[in-house]
Amino acid sequence: MTTTLNPETPVARPAVAPRSARSRRLRRLWRDTGWRHLVGIAVVIYAIFPILYVLSAAFNPNGTLTGSNALFSEVGFDSFARILNNPDQPFAAWFANTVIIGGVTALLTVFLGAMAAYAFSRMRFSGRRMGLLTLLLVQMFPQLLAVVAIFLLMSSIGDIFPALGLNTKTGLIMVYMGGALGVNTYLMYGFFNTIPVSIDEAAKIDGAGHTRIFFTIILRLVLPILVVVGLLAFITSTNEYVIASVMLTDPENKTLAVGLYQLVSNPRYADWSAFSAGAVMSALPVVIIFVALQKYIVGGLTAGSVK
């Protein structure tokens, strides 16, 4: 694990300031950001030390996952080569499928969810409270038998529209869209409620219709939450296993979660190091997207414009 030493740490500076001033500055620094680093490091350790096992297994050409506590006893790239070059496990295709399915699901989820949240937040209509409650309650139904139901539904849809049925990305995305509302809508709804209505009114006075207010004003102001919801939807759909495993059976159609799980589904034959190498690579899109979008979450228009 790497942590950057704060270059502003006073120890690293020549002690030119008088003693009392220096200790005061130290105290201020500690109260300002020092403790944050300490907490940050502690939580980062908690967050990543189980993942070190995955890394260690990925770099150990024929290792087990938890069989040994001697991490990184051997380092090599065999398992990466193994998972990338096996024609029966088209890792690149899985990767592309995952990114496409996750990406489309995320974008559509954000769009559908934001529309619903806008309606719930800005309009009053009969059935509004009922609608909100329905969204919440549907999420609570135990999904023990969901796979059976979805398989039946998708197989009969596929009978008529093969391009939307089993074994298609479009079909799977449609199933994921079933969950586009729900929790995400609530998250956006809460955020929308914090945007002053005076803004809408001003626009309305200027003759803007609801569509225009929604697309050109509201969506701009709630950008941070749109990014958060998009990210959540992306992660959820890329990690989803149960439905994807039943819907996608052809090797070249699988997502990473399904394909990788099958590498280790039979513990007797499990190739943990190849699996771990795959898992490490499959976590990359999430991390990259998060890093790329972070500034939109924390430095959105609202925060940026006041500075």
Binding site: L112, M115, A116, A119, F141, L153, M174, G178, L181, F214
Partner: peptide, 20 residues
Amino acid sequence: YLAPGFAFLIIFQLFVVVYT
């Protein structure tokens, strides 16, 4: 604003509930 999202919700989630 609600129709698209609810259409998917009804087809793919309420169906599961009703089927169960």
